[in-house]
Design a protein around this nucleic acid. Structure first.
Lengths: 143, 143
DNA sequence: TTTCAAAATTGTAATCATTACAAATTTGAT
DNA sequence: ATCAAATTTGTAATGATTACAATTTTGAAA
């Protein structure tokens, strides 16, 4: 892993993004930086409630909505059932395995070119997502 | 509109895609070819029940799932709440207005290059989607 | 430090898209 | 005309997300 996060660097990151760094927000943001699995609300909640027993699922929802609004994280709609979240906001694509549901990052260099949002006329663009669907190696081997 | 569809050409299209053309499947497929609004299940159901009063929402769900599986249509997960559907399966991107929820097609020529799915190593890729989020002209004018 | 209003968090109840499932209907080959 | 398989349908269940009101925390001013 290229970067190393501690409580102060994460706190600083949130402040830069105009987010007041509460204990819960720090925990969610840190979780997403340390778990590059594109977790769901359920997964984040289940893991965080061990460290912060009083945390509620509504707070996870509120926090993720705020972090995404402030562009500190990405919300990923690649899965038809649940929204997934990504703590890394640099440009990259995503892949979901239609068999096991796993979501992984796809480096940009494996694509010809990331679409230039600036080139779409007549709209004020906020974000662009590239999603791939298919079957991962692990699932392909099993069948 | 470049293409003109009638019941026979749609029937032929379904057969080509290995889908038995029932009345309901023809109605859903025709609806998607004639309404390029990326409708939801609710919208399709509400419009079709006038022509086919006995049609059920479950059939709409079943049919859309089958059509998407056979790659006769696209299922679009650009909207966090509901899946939307597109009767056109040629390569193009989508844009959703974060204000009014409208989903429109974005021609490929407005992007540098559509990502080449063949270039992603280690996965068997089925589909690739490019989604843009932002604000449409109509909503920008109002604010 | 005390006070107090604004912000944040929490728990519960409601919403609503989607799915499960079993019954009813239709289809198509014999 | 028969009958099994495929399709359609209606209802009930599921489960992610949101609404909302109550509680707690924060942080500035006295």
């Amino acid at each position: 892993m290229a970067e190393q996060w501690n409580i102060n660097t994460v706190k600083q990151y949130l402040i830069e993004k105009d987010i007041k760094p509460s204990v819960q927000r720090l925990a969610v943001m840190t979780y997403l930086l340390e778990h590059r699995t594109h977790p769901t609300v359920e997964e984040i909640f289940n893991d965080l409630k061990d460290k912060i027993p009083t945390i509620s699922k509504t707070t996870i929802y509120n926090t993720l909505k705020l972090l995404a609004l402030k562009k500190a994280i990405l919300s990923i709609t690649i899965d038809e059932k649940m929204v997934r979240y990504d703590g890394y906001v640099d440009r990259h694509a995503h892949f979901i395995c239609l068999s096991c549901g796993k979501v992984v990052d796809v480096p940009l260099k494996e694509m010809i070119e990331f679409p230039k949002t600036e080139n779409v006329e007549g709209f004020a663009l906020e974000e662009t997502h590239v999603y791939h669907r298919g079957y991962c190696m692990d699932c392909l081997k099993e069948n």
